[in-house]
Structure formats: structure tokens, C-alpha cells
Design a binder for these strands. Structure first.
Lengths: 298, 298
DNA sequence: TAACATCGATAGGAAATAACTATGGAACTA
DNA sequence: TAGTTCCATAGTTATTTCCTATCGATGTTA
């Protein structure tokens, strides 16, 4: 059974005439006749009685007509629905970010997004770098914010900006007395780091290794806010991204810019190169690139 | 858009895999791919995102999937419904008869029909000969009972039986005193006939003409019962079919069998030669031929 | 890291299907 | 009776669908 046959049959049923139905369907009358005959054979029952010149639907034909016209209406509606869904599709954005970026970068971005598109539907997912990249690859995310380094060749990775990692110490910390603090001064300090799964922790460890010492890890936390609280209580020091420093309105922590080679991290925008991007996603990505202070990079 | 494309698409959506979908649809994978691509072109939006090896429905695709699977379900149901309608069709019989036959022949026939098929759905229509034949030709009746003569070459006309027309007179009528009443004795009588539209009236007129006299038409009625009432009141005489005579349990009328050439009428079964006949209609017709007292014919 | 396996898209030719023209026969009309 | 209208059939052409073979990309495994 094919839709064309239904279209032919419904037209015949409505016009009560093969010839005029054929005209309306823009086919020759024999073509239409054959398709109707074929349809009747497949159904297994005659649908139209040919009584001399007059046509008449059998009771099977009447039932079939009801159903067929409903089906054709459903098909038409489907086309319209899909067209409408294009608008809907344009309203959806699925974001991902790691926890050390999310609370500082996502809220202002979403605020701007909502100003421009009050009807946008945002889904946001905070995960580790690995999980986020997996979701990106699977198409569950339209875009994600991560931090370098990444070993990922299949996804599009576009650097947005770099930011300094500031030394976070408690207000009474002895390092505050020094004029210049370099990485070497940190050698004997207790570091408070995020858990290993989070890249910021790894980044700090690798920064330390680069300067030929290991941080004395005292405490691991999943949240930067927790780290900041612990630092504020004098339980250790940490390296905190600039966005976290700027976001910290409490005065319980002092932030120092290290002298010499400053530790930094680079925030990147990750997308799937093959995935279809709705206009809203495209626009959002373009705006992100505009908004993000690339020139602030150190 | 064609149903085959919907079948392909729904299968892919459900299996999440072109190759296995192609196997399930018993086509090669390229064939299925092409049809999906064609479908997407016609819809105007991508329905399936190909992300590496993984597949993913776009939001348009999800909406389309919902609709498509509903449509396919509707198509399947339609086939079942039509099959079921065959049973329904088998329960319908549409009968037609002229008024001078209907009250005597139809009730006993329906009684027997209901005994054999308690769930049968009968539609009965009492009309003039012309109207009945027109309905037969249009397919609005499955079968009809009429009386000869008929000028109709397009319909099937099958004689069922012939019956005598009895002379109906009031109990005090002078003709009752005669031992033998012939058509010549009727020459001066007042005839009560059905209106011209009814064939029994015409038949009586033609019977009289055949015997070289005209009935002195006094009164015309549309119903045989009315005629019988009038005869009973002594307002005239009439010729009444045997079935009407047998049906008349009141003793207000005396019926005489004419001597010599007896007037008769022949009851026929009329059907449309091209029309589809359900099993019930076929069986009913076969039973009618069995039941009807063909051997009673004069 | 290289070899292998899997998957969807593409190309080109073969098969199947639906289209057309021409025509026939039945059924109504004038 | 002649003419017209209508649906079905026959034969052919055109289109569409399908198939095989193959490519390129993506994961997986040795």
C-alpha cells in the first residue's frame, strides 16, 4: 500500500469519477485505474463498485475512504509540523562545561542569550572533561566549554581566551608580606586541589612539576567554592582561575599574581564538526567569540 | 512522500542503524540510504544526524518519527478494519418491493431470514416499480420484488412465481349468486383500482382491455388495504392478488376465482447483474427461490 | 600503531514499477 | 441509431527503485 494509491482512491471517492480524478491527480486515467485495481487486490476486497457509468463505494470502500483521508491529512500535517519544529529546534541549546568554568562563565552567557532570545530553551550540563567530550561526540551537547590541554582529534576545539591562575591565600598568610611571590616560594606550601578527575587539579600539579616540585596536596574537593572556603580558613593555598577570583566578592581570600612565568589556563569552545547546528546555536557561538575577552590573554 | 520511505525511516529510527534497518526491510543498505536522503530532501529538513558511526534523530526527526509511526499503525489498522468490514458487509441486506407485494411477501421472508441470521441488518424500501428499478441500477438495493411486465434490459429479472388475481366483492354482491363468473360479467361493474403509478392498477386495466372492455374506474388508492376496505363497503369490485386474499382474515370481502382465462400476475426477483453480492445476499436469494411456491403458478 | 571491522554514502547498471498512448466495450443521451 | 462518456486493457516508454561494488570515515583489536 502506498500513499499515492490512497491519494488516487480518495480523489476517485470524492469525485465519483475516474477520469476527473485522474485529471485532478495529473495522471492519465489508465494509470489511475491501474493503481486503484492494484490497491484493491492488495486490500483483498473491492473498494469501488463500477455500476455502468456510476460509481459506488462498497462498505469496505467507505471504511477505507474514512481511514485513507485521515491518513493523508495526517501526512500533510506532519509536513507542517516538521516545518514548525524547525522553529522549535532553533530555540534549543544544550551546553556543557566543567565545574571550574561553569559557575563563572555560563551565567553571564545565558543572561545575554536570554536578553536576545527570551524564548530560548537552554539545557546545561556540568561534567568532567571526559564526560563532556563524550556527550559532544554523541551529539548530546551542542557546545561545551573546556580547558586545555585536550587530547581530542575528532571534535572542533577553538580557544576562546587564556586567563591567569592566581595564588589564593588566607588574609593572614605569610606570603602576603613578600613583595614578589614566585613559583619557587610555593614549594613548601600545602595545596588544596580539586579532585583528580577535574582538570584544574591536574593543571596545577603539572604546573608544579614543570617547576620541579610537587605540591603537597592536603585536601581535594570537587568544587572551586569549597576550595576557596578552605583557603579562606587558612587550611592551605591554591591556584584559582581569574574568573573565580573576580567572582569572589567575599574578602576572606587574598589573591596574588605570581611573578615570573605566570600559570594560566586556556578556555576552549568544543563542538562537533559534523553536527547540524541550528541558527540559534550558530548565533550563540558567534556571540561567544565576540564576548569572550580574547585580548585579555596573558 | 511515500509509505515505503516512512517504513524505512521508522526502522532506522528504531534500530539506530542503517545497515540493520536495511536487513529488516529486506533491501540493500544503499537503497534504504537513498530513500532516507530523498525523504529528507522532500521534507526540507535533515531527520537523522550521522555522527560518525552513531545516529541521532534531529528534533525534526523526532517529531517526524512520532507521526510516521502513527501513520504506519493507522495503515495497518486500516487493513484489519477492512477485513472486519467484510463480516459487517455480510450482515447487510437492502430490499425493495412494490406496495402490492411488500406487506404479504416481505414479512415472512424477513422472519425466516432473522431465524437463520439473527444479526442481519435489513433495510427495506417500499416504492413504485420505476423507483425500485432505479435504486437497483444505482446499487442502492441488493434485490427487489416486482411484478411483470417490466421493460428493463439492464437488470437481472428472475420470475419467482405467478399468482391468480381474485375477484373481490362485498358479501352482498349480486355476482356471488352466479355459479360461474367470467370476465365478461365484470363489464358493467365499478372497479376500485390503485393509482396509476402502481402496476397492479395498470395490470388490471390491461387485463380488461385484453377482454375488450374498460373497467369503470371509480376510485384510486395507493394501498391495497384501502382498496379492500372500499370493496368491503360495497363501493365497487376489484381484482386482488392471491397473497392479499390469503392475508385478509376479515370476512368483509368475498373472493371469487374467475372462470375461463384467469387473470394472473408474475412476481419477479430483480437484481443488478454487475453488483457485488455478499454471501448473505447470495444465500438469501437462494433461499427465496427455494421458499417461493413456484409450483403454485397457475 | 597498524591491521581489521563496521558503517553510511556514492556510482553505475539492472530490474521493477508507474507512466503514457491507443483502443475497446459498455452505458447512457440525443 | 449515432454519438458521447466512461472505465478497462494492451503495449510501450519513462521513471523509479534496487542491486553490486566500492569508497571514506570511524572505531576496535592485536
Amino acid at each position: 500500500m502506498e500513499l499515492q494509491q490512497l491519494r488516487y482512491f480518495v480523489t476517485v471517492a470524492e469525485l465519483g469519477n475516474f477520469t476527473r480524478a485522474a485529471e485532478k491527480c495529473y495522471v492519465s486515467q489508465p494509470s489511475l485505474s491501474q493503481q486503484i485495481i492494484k490497491l484493491e487486490k492488495e486490500i483483498g476486497h473491492p473498494l469501488i463498485e463500477r455500476l455502468g457509468r456510476r460509481l459506488r463505494l462498497t462498505s469496505a470502500g467507505e471504511i477505507f475512504y474514512e481511514r485513507a483521508s485521515n491518513i493523508l491529512r495526517a501526512v500533510e500535517e506532519t509536513q507542517h509540523l516538521v516545518n514548525a519544529s524547525y522553529t522549535l529546534e532553533n530555540k534549543k541549546i544544550r551546553l556543557g562545561a566543567i565545574p571550574t568554568i561553569a559557575p563563572f562563565l555560563i551565567p553571564p552567557l545565558l543572561k545575554k542569550l536570554f536578553q536576545a532570545h527570551p524564548d530560548a530553551e537552554i539545557t546545561f550540563k556540568e561534567m568532567t572533561t571526559d564526560q563532556t567530550m563524550q556527550d559532544c561526540k554523541a551529539g548530546d551537547l551542542d557546545l561545551a566549554f573546556l580547558s586545555l590541554p585536550l587530547q581530542e582529534e575528532l571534535l572542533d576545539v577553538e580557544p576562546l581566551f587564556s586567563e591567569e591562575l592566581f595564588l589564593a591565600v588566607s588574609p593572614r598568610h605569610k606570603l602576603l608580606k613578600k613583595k614578589r611571590v614566585t613559583s619557587k616560594d610555593l614549594q613548601d606550601e600545602s595545596f588544596i586541589l580539586l579532585s583528580e578527575a577535574h582538570c584544574l587539579g591536574q593543571q596545577i600539579v603539572s604546573f608544579c612539576q614543570h617547576h620541579h616540585y610537587s605540591p603537597r596536596v592536603n585536601c581535594e574537593s570537587a568544587q572551586l567554592a569549597t576550595v576557596q572556603e578552605l583557603v579562606g580558613l587558612g587550611m592551605g593555598i591554591s591556584l584559582v582561575p581569574e574568573m573565580a577570583k573576580n567572582n569572589d566578592k567575599s574578602k576572606r581570600i587574598k589573591y596574588l599574581s605570581l611573578s615570573g612565568v605566570k600559570p594560566t589556563r586556556t578556555i576552549v569552545l568544543v563542538t562537533h564538526p559534523q553536527r547540524y547546528q541550528s541558527n540559534l546555536v550558530k548565533e550563540f557561538i558567534a556571540n561567544i567569540k565576540e564576548w569572550c575577552p580574547l585580548d585579555d590573554s596573558i
